[in-house]
Amino acid sequence: MRTTLPVIVAFLSGFVMVVSFFFGGALGDLDDNALQWVTIVGGFTLVLGVFSILRVNGKVVAKRGRDWPYKLATVISVVAMAIPSMLPVSTNTVGGRIFYSIFPESWGSRMGTGPSSIYDWLFNYIDSPMMETMFAMLAFFIASAAYRAFRARNAEASLLLITATVVMLWRIPMGEALLRLFSDSLPDYINMYVMNGFNVSVQRGIIIGAALGAASMSLRIILGIERTYMGKG
């Protein structure tokens, strides 16, 4: 029961999607409905993940465990972002009527995910700048990695070094001007042969390999051979 039922469910739901590709017209909106169902269940999965973050961090805060003030900051941040976004915006809904019988109606514009909401403000002025800074910091780490990776120890490493240097030059106006000193068509050749030739061919090889791998793994899941997604127990 504990393993057979999930295998049957996985088989049927996977089989429906494969069949609907070949007999889409005859089955009506079956695949669209199935996709909507998956989106809904997937949505709950993400909420479960966030709930788990709150539970794990909340436990550490309650026990005054290691780094508990930081965990408290995480809990407050999740709550501050999530709760106002979930509260009703209008008074037309049942939830809205209950909410605005307790809180003033002027709070309406601050709820939800609209332009002047708390959610929007927190995203624009805290979350988004931090996200950009995190990615910007990678410039330093990538430079450190480049120093180690780009030492021309052998032919392969030299190819990596030369291509990366050429592409970095090609991507900036000053570098492009420098490349044009050697040949006026050099930047065009880089675009044509390096980016659309060597780069595309390798990406294509990787995509073909990964697609075959993903398809075979999907078949294993549908047929119940691959069961690791169930975990232990």
Partner: peptide, 10 residues
């Protein structure tokens, strides 16, 4: 989970 995984696999 099997519903999501199976559907996605399909």
């Amino acid at each position: 989970l099997a519903f999501v995984i199976g559907n996605t696999a399909g």
